[in-house]
Simulated scan of single mutants.
Amino acid sequence: MTLPKLETAARVGDQAFDALHAAISNGDYPAGRRLQIRNVAHELGISVMPVREAIKRLEEMGLVETQPYRGAVVKDFTPTELLHIYAVRRVLEVEAAAQGTKNLTREDFQHLDDLYAGLRRAVEDNQVIDYLDQDEMVLTTVYSAAGNPVLIEMIRTLWGRCRHYKIVGARDELDLGNAVHLLEHQERLIQAVKLGDSAAAARITAESIDAASARIRQALPRNR
C-alpha cells in the first residue's frame, strides 16, 4: 500500500498522523510492519520531522513500538496483552452501555437502525473494514449517550489497539460462513436500548466482549 501525497499546509504533522493512523486502522499497515521514517516521508511527499512527530503520537497511543535494530513498527499484541485490553474494555463498555441506554432518543433509534442496515450490507459484501467501522459507530452512538467524553475517548483508544485482531476475527468468521455471528450482538443490543433496558444492554455488551476474549484464548496461541 502506498500512502497518498499530502498537501503542503499548516499542521502537516496532523496530516501525517491521520494518514498513518488510517493505514494501520484499515489493515494496510499490518502488525509488525516497519515504519521507516524516510520512506514514509517520501511516500507522503513531506519532510521527516512531521513523520517523526506522527510516529511518536502513534507510539503514545500504543499502536506503534520501537524495537531494537528495527526502529518503529506497527505493534503486534500478544494474546496476553489482548486479553488485558479486552478486560479493560469490558469494564468501560458495560458501564457505557448501561448509562447510554438511559439517554437515547427516538432519533438515536433511527440512526441505530440505519447503521445496522449498513452492517448487514458490509457483511453481505464481505467488506470487513466497512463492517468494523459501522460496528464502532453503533457502539459509539449508544456509549456517547452516557454523556462522558473521557469514557468514549478511552474506549476508542482501546478499539484502536485491538483493531488488527478485530480485522482478523471478522475475516475468519466470514471465511467460515459464520456471518450471523457478526450481527447477533448488535441486533440484540439495539433491541435492548430501544426498550430502555439498561441491564440487558450491559449484559449483551459483556457477552460480546467475553466471546471475543474466548476466541483470543482459543485461536491466537495456535497461530504463534
Score class of each variant (00 low, 15 high):
Q186K: 07
A9Y: 01
Q110H: 14
T66I: 14
T2H: 10
Y131K: 06
R222G: 10
P68R: 14
D172R: 14
A96S: 12
E93T: 09
R188F: 00
K56R: 10
V180E: 14
R217Q: 13
N103P: 06
G160W: 01
M49C: 03
L83K: 12
R70D: 06
L220S: 09
D14V: 04
E7P: 13
G118M: 04
A31R: 03
Q191P: 00
Y131E: 12
K166S: 15
L176R: 15
V94P: 04
I37Q: 08
I216K: 09
H111T: 14
A202Y: 05
G71R: 10
E107C: 00
Q218M: 11
L82C: 02
V193W: 01
I152W: 06
D130W: 08
A201T: 07
V12Y: 00
Y86E: 13
H84T: 10
R224H: 06
A211T: 10
H111C: 01
I37D: 02
D108Y: 03
V128L: 05
R38V: 05
A211H: 04
R106V: 07
V74Y: 15
R89Y: 01
P30S: 06
I152S: 03
M49G: 04
V123K: 08
R33Y: 07
L176G: 01
R70A: 11
E184H: 11
G62W: 06
L220Q: 08
H84W: 07
E153L: 02
E124A: 09
Q36Y: 08
E43G: 11
H42W: 00
D18C: 01
M61I: 08
I24C: 04
R222K: 13
L132E: 07
E59T: 15
A23Y: 02
R156T: 12
G169D: 14
N39C: 00
Q127M: 10
C162T: 11
R34T: 06
D14R: 14
R38L: 02
P149G: 05
A122T: 06
P79N: 09
A97I: 06
L35F: 05
H164W: 10
R57S: 12
G62N: 05
I85R: 11
V150F: 08
V128W: 09
R120M: 08
L112F: 03
L176A: 13
V142I: 15
I85G: 02
L220F: 06
A200K: 05
L119W: 10
R106F: 05
T2F: 07
M137R: 15
R215N: 04
